[in-house]
């Protein structure tokens, strides 16, 4: 109710890229672990994206594209044809 009314307020409708990024990370399943006080390894970030994060985003993204599938083959792509065919040497 109240929030909805706020949202519709024109001042609120500027695009907030930080919020967008946060929402994208959430969608990709970011693991937001609390930063512990006794942090002995400083290289480890406080949060991390699972390995399939962008896979998930890609799957969602494809719903918004009219992307044509591509055709791939091996036969017929060899550029130089060796003139001598392989034969058993007897």
């Amino acid at each position: 109710g109240k929030e909805k009314a706020n949202e519709l307020h024109s001042e609120m409708s500027a695009f907030d890229s930080t919020a967008f990024a946060e929402d994208l990370l959430t969608f990709m399943g970011i693991n937001r672990t609390e930063v512990e006080e006794t942090n002995d390894s400083e290289d480890v970030p406080a949060d991390f994206l699972p390995s399939h994060a962008w896979q998930k985003m890609g799957e969602e993204a494809l719903k918004y594209f009219r992307r044509a599938p591509t055709f791939h083959y091996m036969m017929g792509s060899f550029k130089s044809e060796s003139p001598v065919r392989k034969q058993r040497i007897e």
Binding site: L24, W54, Q55, K56, M57, G58, E59, E60, A61, L62, K63, Y64, F65, R66, R67, A68, P69
Partner: peptide, 27 residues
């Protein structure tokens, strides 16, 4: 070339790296 089919089978039409790149592209 673009796809003309409605509700094309997006999840099948791209795989692996290509799919992930489409995610970044849309973002």
């Amino acid at each position: 070339l673009v796809n003309k089919l409605l509700h094309a089978e997006g999840q099948h039409l791209c795989r692996g790296k290509e799919k992930e790149k489409m995610g970044l592209l849309l973002v």
